[in-house]
Amino acid sequence: MNEQAVPDEPRFRVRARYTDTTVTVYQAYRPEIGRAAARTGRFPAAWKRDRMTWIKPSFLWMMYRCGWGTKESQETVLAVEIDRAGFEWALRNACLSHHVPALHGDEAAWKRRLRQSPARVQWDPERDLHHNPLPHRSLQLGLAGEAAARYADEWLVGITDVTPLATEIHARVRAGEADRARALLPEERPYPVADGALAHLCA
């Protein structure tokens, strides 16, 4: 991820590390949950299925959110590899977390859709190595109910503890070694979605 604004980067675009069949998203948990998940490849019983869980395809946005794994209850950073079909199902069935009249009509209609949707989307400013906001947006995807259950039980392919990577990159940033820090970042590319697939999520 370049620290400078990319001239042709659209404001809304999913960027992620992905393969032909999987996409990697990031989450941060307290060690009792995060380490157990990385050890077994599954979320432990302490992981609450009845709570919304937010997944983030952007490594740097996750680092901004968890303070490079230093914030309380976010000390263990996980790279969660999930099925692309599941990820795209969540996008298709998501609702924006804020009301946009041009997309939703009146506020009551948006609230109804939000209640009925198993996923919700926020677009927050992407971040650079120093956590400065960039002009383009980063996807945050919230999963609840059916989506959270599918995430944990059907879409999950693998879980890796990337806290050591976060710590190393942070150390390079603090040492003023931006180029060396950037070279360690996971490669994220524009994620291919069908034309119009994000139309209900961009405004």
Score class of each variant (00 low, 15 high):
residue 1 M to E: 09
residue 5 A to V: 09
residue 10 P to V: 04
residue 14 V to K: 03
residue 16 A to Y: 05
residue 16 A to R: 03
residue 16 A to L: 07
residue 18 Y to P: 03
residue 23 V to S: 01
residue 23 V to Q: 01
residue 23 V to M: 03
residue 26 Y to R: 05
residue 29 Y to H: 15
residue 30 R to E: 15
residue 30 R to C: 06
residue 31 P to M: 12
residue 32 E to I: 09
residue 33 I to W: 00
residue 35 R to H: 08
residue 36 A to F: 06
residue 36 A to W: 03
residue 37 A to W: 03
residue 38 A to W: 05
residue 39 R to W: 04
residue 54 W to Y: 12
residue 55 I to N: 07
residue 58 S to E: 05
residue 64 Y to W: 13
residue 65 R to F: 00
residue 67 G to T: 11
residue 67 G to V: 13
residue 68 W to T: 05
residue 69 G to T: 01
residue 89 W to K: 04
residue 90 A to P: 06
residue 91 L to K: 08
residue 94 A to L: 10
residue 97 S to L: 06
residue 98 H to D: 14
residue 99 H to W: 15
residue 102 A to L: 12
residue 107 E to C: 07
residue 107 E to Q: 15
residue 110 W to G: 09
residue 114 L to V: 05
residue 116 Q to Y: 02
residue 118 P to M: 08
residue 119 A to R: 02
residue 121 V to G: 08
residue 122 Q to T: 12
residue 132 N to Y: 13
residue 132 N to P: 06
residue 140 Q to H: 15
residue 141 L to T: 09
residue 143 L to F: 09
residue 143 L to K: 11
residue 146 E to K: 09
residue 150 R to E: 07
residue 151 Y to E: 04
residue 154 E to I: 09
residue 155 W to V: 05
residue 156 L to G: 10
residue 157 V to F: 01
residue 166 A to K: 06
residue 167 T to G: 01
residue 174 R to Y: 05
residue 175 A to Q: 14
residue 185 L to M: 12
residue 186 P to H: 07
residue 188 E to D: 07
residue 191 Y to N: 08
residue 199 A to S: 14
residue 200 H to I: 10
residue 201 L to E: 02
residue 202 C to M: 06
